[in-house]
Write a protein that binds this DNA or RNA. Structure first.
Lengths: 192, 192
DNA sequence: ACATTAGCGGAGGTATGCCTCCGGTTCAAC
DNA sequence: GTTGAACCGGAGGCATACCTCCGCTAATGT
């Protein structure tokens, strides 16, 4: 089953040729990932350049628009998420779905941003949403067919719930775990 | 039981005396409520003044700091929420809690803002958080003692989950309802 | 070693938001 | 109707973010 792991959409901006340029490129991506995670989509580009230790000009050369930068970060997340779907496919139906949803939470280093992005409506967002759904929805369907998931909700419902929860802050990791467990129980079918 | 309805904290800024001033004051509050709901805590004050049809100076005279304005809006929400706790107290344990949590979602016209505020740490936030918990937690405890709520989560856990979900956008009201129902089922104790 | 050229980075123009200040307006009390 | 105090509103100074442009730097190929 691993070979059928859905492919995520491919990144659009080109990685530069020269060694120093590539270093800067990567530093920018890392800095952006951090900044988006902290401040959501509204993170300051000049701050990102500062964090990466490069001039603002360099940022704009690599990523002409804010959207380009955000997309690049976001596409990475989506790719990992799509890959994860393949990795959990061997587990029993419910465990597979639960594990994937947990990955969804973990991988979303850009938590707030992903959460905001789920609503936006750009060309690129639509396509990666599609990719993500292509990866995750089979897990959902399988779990539901196995009677492990309640019948009155859609995959989209579940994802929105989980991403909403993810976006919130928690006092500590234990709380995050408790809340996640509670939410997942909500997803399961009720015995009677 | 209604007479024991917890009192919310009281508003600090004074409503002006003159009739025209009062009109402006109220218009500002209404506009702020809208704006905070749309853009979260970061809403532009000049935009709020524009919406209210008053000059920016008027806004600042009534609410010297952004915090004053936000607090005023927020305090209203909290008050309503505290009141609601009294209104549902006659229902059976679980229904009372569920109803109150639904109010929590509905009343939060300042959805995103309330959601952000839950984390902040100012004097005022702490005190209204306290008030809100004083109103809601008894409902939670009662439901739990009646065996209707799982034992491995706290009231804070539940509130964070719900407010996270609330903050997210939904494609329509039906979806919101489905997700909320799913989340509430997660809160209930599992039969086995 | 040297030339070529990709790549650098920040100065600075533009836009927007924050907040102060004060000349003018309007309410309301007499 | 007059008057004085309360109130208005926006001009404008300050800060910050966006984004462009271009003279300089240094990596790479020969």
């Amino acid at each position: 089953m691993k070979e059928k792991a859905a492919e995520g959409p491919r990144t659009r901006v080109r990685r530069p040729q020269r060694a120093d340029a590539r270093r800067n490129f990567d530093a920018l991506l890392a800095a952006a990932r951090e900044a988006f995670a902290e401040h959501g989509t509204a993170a300051s580009l000049e701050d990102i350049a500062r964090r990466a230790g490069v001039g603002i000009g360099t940022l704009y050369r690599n990523f002409p628009t804010r959207q380009d930068l955000f997309d690049s970060v976001y596409l990475d997340e989506i790719d990992e998420l799509c890959g994860a779907a393949g990795q959990v496919a061997d587990l029993p139906p419910w465990e597979a779905l639960a594990a994937w949803l947990r990955r969804f939470v973990d991988y979303a280093a850009t938590k707030r941003a992903i959460y905001e992005a789920l609503n936006r409506d750009s060309e690129m967002m639509r396509s990666s949403r599609t990719a993500m759904y292509a990866a995750g929805e089979p897990l959902f369907d399988r779990a539901r067919e196995a009677g492990e998931v309640r019948g009155d909700v859609t995959f989209d419902d579940v994802l929105r719930m989980i991403s909403g929860i993810t976006g919130g802050g928690f006092v500590d990791d234990d709380q995050r775990e408790r809340v996640l467990r509670m939410a997942l129980d909500g997803v399961r079918a009720r015995p009677a």
